[in-house]
Design a protein around this nucleic acid. Structure first.
Lengths: 311, 311
DNA sequence: ATCAACTATGAACACTATTCATAATTATGC
DNA sequence: GCATAATTATGAATAGTGTTCATAGTTGAT
């Protein structure tokens, strides 16, 4: 009666706090989840979620089921990891190229757990800037690229990771902070502080400033903390992923504003060579990223929602 | 891809060592399990069972999955117990009447775990012999009857527990031990040692001796160990459930023989009043009995094999 | 060697979770 | 406040697939 899909649904529901977002995460329609919840409540003769308007909150029964889900889904992952090790060799290498600097933040802890789970897989970061990272895949200089907007490349497989919002970051008290939403023109006055990468790799410039024909001034910094320091000390403004700055927002070190009416969103993909795609440890790496990022990162949304069909 | 049904199947497969017996236990056909196994092996690209003739043995991958099953199915049981406590009150009483004396052996440890799981349910054994135990249910003097062969009783619900074989028990070196299978006539010579209950409640007498028109001599003892002591000291022979004497067989304290070509089998049911049937703790009690007995008792088989439909 | 019991496999079926279409409810902007 | 957008609930239809059925192939016992 209770099935694994119910547990996955409950977990997603708990993490997203919304039926439709949860539905997107488990690659089903909102309707499907609604039915699932109804069936569960009928079966256990006890409400599982409680509505406060649109927001859902879990009841005691719901929380118990989520707790069960965490445990069980984790154990299944672990078992399937072991099975993968049994059916294929558990050695190899995963040299990762990061297009997105901020991604260091969430990737580091994931690399730690991965190393513990796959001691015989060499995990490395390919450092430095690369204009065409997929090239590195082709030539065997790297095994994984984490980045955005992949074109269709023969022999290369792209796995969607997630979609996240890029927010404008300002010093507290900055006069732009009076606006709820910043527009392209708002970026013409202040110095724009970015990572040291070409213009076209900066979403704000490519997707907002250039289309609006706005000019900008730019200076760079290597690390996220350095950028934030400059912003906080009023040397300029920045545009960073929402999940990268939540900590600083909580302490009012900086403030954040949406960029454009609908916000500026960016998609993250993981790309590998076809041969790499089926490896057990790669699949596990992928699953770990998704799980951890959806669970821990603020404002992260699933990509390729309900359209995709599982093979 | 992996579903709970697969784990239940694997567990049953592990406990029974046979596809068809496992199928009966999970209330599916042998064909269904065969398909399930095939799908699993294809999915994990690794054999899960290994055949030695008809006997199945689990591979490394299979054992890992069984280990997963034990953990997960246990956790689900625990969670559902908690949910039952949330949706309905967890207090009440379970006064049990045992028709079958030997059942003490497996019931005692189950009662212990049950008491830990449901501290507010009063669990008791109704002692003494009762000619019509269902009467006790009706009059509220008992809540549960564990026994055999229930007639259709209005207001009373019968849950099948399991089927087990009753074996003839002899002293080592007894001349009947030369035969592989004992027939009705073989019981006319020796003293028959039984529990102190009427003739018609002794399966051997009712189902074998009377139909064959064989006469017998009988003496009684209260406890299983007492009966076995008498048998071992050559005061007579007995007929007891296979699982009740495995320990003694292992130490060659007594020997056992099949009764009749097909063996003498007995069915065990749990009966309650209709109102009791839906209570959370009763369902849990039932589930615990099935789980423990199938896992721990030798030669126990499921009842009402593939015919029944789940609601 | 024959028979009984068990297992594997393809095709047909039956079940039911999911989607689709839509109404109802809630939030947000002007 | 009203209109619009977003979210959720619900019944009916669909589609996907797990189960059974029928049967052939194995294994083991007498």
């Amino acid at each position: 009666m209770l099935e694994l899909r119910h547990l996955r649904t409950l977990q997603a529901l708990h993490e997203t706090g919304s039926v439709s977002r949860a539905a997107a995460r488990v690659h089903l329609t909102q309707s499907a989840l609604s039915h699932q919840i109804r069936v569960l409540q009928a079966h256990y003769q006890s409400p599982i979620i409680q509505r406060h308007g649109h927001a859902v909150q879990l009841t005691e029964a719901g929380r118990r089921l989520v707790q069960l889900a965490e445990k069980i889904l984790g154990e299944i992952r672990a078992a399937e990891r072991d099975l993968a090790k049994i059916s294929q060799k558990a050695t190899g290498s995963l040299r990762i190229v990061l297009e997105c600097h901020t991604c260091f933040d969430w990737l580091m802890p994931i690399m730690d757990t991965f190393r513990a789970d796959w001691p015989d897989v060499e995990l490395d970061l390919v450092s430095g800037f690369h204009s065409d990272p997929v090239h590195l895949l082709r030539h065997g200089a790297a095994d994984v690229v984490i980045g955005s907007e992949p074109g269709l490349q023969p022999g290369i497989v792209h796995f969607p990771l997630f979609r996240f919002e890029i927010l404008a970051v300002l010093a507290p008290g900055h006069e732009l902070g009076k606006k709820r939403v910043l527009e392209a023109q708002d970026f013409s006055r202040d110095m724009l502080i970015t990572y040291p990468v070409p213009d076209e790799r900066i979403d704000l410039i490519r997707q907002v400033l250039i289309p609006a024909n706005v000019t900008w001034q730019r200076r760079t910094a290597e690390l996220t903390v350095a950028i934030l320091q400059l912003v906080a000390s009023r040397r300029g403004i920045a545009a960073l992923p929402g999940w990268g700055i939540t900590n600083y927002l909580d302490y009012d070190y900086v403030i954040a504003r949406r960029i454009g009416r609908r916000g500026l969103w960016s998609d993250l993909y993981l790309s590998v060579r076809e041969e790499t795609a089926t490896l057990g440890y790669l699949q596990d790496f992928l699953a770990t990223i998704r799980q951890v990022c959806f669970a821990k990162l603020e404002g992260v949304r699933p990509l390729r929602a309900a359209k995709q069909r599982k093979k």
